[in-house]
Every structure is written in structure tokens, then in C-alpha cells.
């Protein structure tokens, strides 16, 4: 089965924030929560680079490891999801995540953050596929519809690739060969550099 990954091609990203908008629109995300963001390095300097970043669905996810109620789970496609009914809003996943993916709807005074929200790779949550509860808590389940993440599909320069890790790596490799530069695959070492933690038996695919 495919192992889902994100890859952002820094040679192509033009910082249009189309992915950010697509994500907000697709999942009807509340104000203040940003499942995806675009960061520009050396803004305004020749050779500036932009990268779109969200949850990378790590192979050995730190959020999963530190969650005190073990509310995270991994699908058979390697997508890291969580159960908002179990989440206690402690913020440990936010401490642990290298990418700044976990988001909270409240500002956190007295530790009241609300339930954590993050990118689902457009794969919904533990509720039945396409149920109103799933949409309300996690957004649309595009994977169950046979589609890929909205951010990557909406990307105007096809800088952001989301899908089967082997397929997007091939696409990227061809690009690097053709243009002869920009071979750095940002974030992959951090996200996928460790042995894959196997999904729990019977995990939702």
C-alpha cells in the first residue's frame, strides 16, 4: 500500500499561499488555526526560497510518542491522525513537533487550549467516512473519495506534491535531473528519516 508523503519543491514555490487558502476552504477551518503555512527564507534577497509546510505525517511521529492519552493513530497509508474525543488539549504534541503542525483554537491561558487540530492529509478522522461528525471535527475526507490533498492539487506551480511517497519522489527526481539544481528535499530527513512506526492492527485505512 502506498505510503503518503508531502514534498515541497522550493525551486517552484512562489509563495502564493494557494495551498493555505485551499486547505482553509476545503475543511472550513476556524480563524486562528492554520493547518498549513508558507515560510519564505531570505525574503527579498536574491535566491530567496519559499516552502509550504504542514504536518508531514512522520514515520516516527513525535506527537504520537508524547501524547499522554495516546490519541494519535497511524493509518495503513502512513497518515498520522488523532481522535479529538480523546484529546485533552495539553499541548505536548505542539512542544514535540518539529514542524509546528499542531494548532489550538484557544490562546491557552490556564492551559485551556481546546482540542488540537492539524493537517489530516485530507483523510478525516476516526468517525465513519463522510459523516457530519467527521467533517465538523477533521474536515473533508478526500482520500476516502479517491482524491489527493486539496493543497497539493490546488498548487499553481505543482511545487507542493502530496501522495504516494515513491511516486512523488520519482517526479521530483526527474525535475532535479532536468533542471540540474535544487536537489534538496526539505524536511524529509526529519519526517521520514527514522524507521516507520507500524500502524496499529486494524487501523482505519
Amino acid at each position: 500500500m502506498a505510503r503518503m508523503k508531502f514534498l515541497c519543491d522550493a525551486e517552484r514555490c512562489i509563495e502564493c499561499n494557494g495551498c493555505v487558502t485551499a486547505c482553509k476552504q476545503e475543511h472550513e477551518i476556524p480563524w486562528g488555526v492554520n493547518r498549513r503555512r508558507v515560510v519564505t527564507l531570505n525574503d527579498g534577497v536574491p535566491g530567496e526560497k519559499s516552502i509550504s509546510v504542514a504536518c508531514m505525517h512522520c514515520s516516527d511521529a513525535p506527537c504520537m510518542a508524547v501524547c499522554p492519552v495516546d490519541c494519535f493513530y497511524k493509518t495503513s497509508e502512513g497518515v498520522v491522525l488523532h481522535d479529538k474525543d480523546l484529546c485533552i488539549g495539553c499541548g505536548y504534541c505542539f512542544y514535540a513537533c518539529p514542524f509546528g503542525a499542531p494548532q489550538f483554537p484557544q490562546d491557552g491561558a490556564f492551559g485551556l487550549r481546546g482540542k488540537m487540530d492539524k493537517c489530516t492529509f485530507c483523510a478525516g478522522g476516526p468517525e465513519p467516512d463522510f459523516s457530519p461528525a467527521e467533517f465538523r471535527k477533521y474536515g473533508r475526507n478526500r482520500l476516502a473519495e479517491g482524491k489527493l490533498p486539496a493543497c497539493a492539487e490546488m498548487c499553481s506551480t505543482k511545487a507542493l506534491l502530496g501522495g504516494d511517497g515513491d511516486v512523488i519522489a520519482d517526479i521530483y527526481r526527474n525535475r532535479v535531473f532536468k533542471r540540474g539544481k535544487g536537489s534538496e528535499v526539505w524536511g524529509w530527513g526529519t519526517a521520514y528519516g527514522k524507521p516507520e512506526k507500524q500502524p496499529a492492527p486494524g487501523a482505519k485505512s
Binding site: 503555512r37 508558507v38 509546528g100 524536511g187
Partner: peptide
């Protein structure tokens, strides 16, 4: 010179390695 449109604390950081 590392910037982002998203407001918030450290939103312009791509990888924070202290978490590991």
C-alpha cells in the same frame, strides 16, 4: 528575513529541533 503570512509565535520557523 525568514517570513510567513501566518501570524503567531514562531510560525516562521520551519524545523524546531528542540522538540526531539
Amino acid at each position: 528575513s525568514q517570513t510567513t503570512q501566518v501570524r503567531g509565535i514562531e510560525t516562521n520557523v520551519l524545523v524546531q529541533s528542540g522538540g526531539e
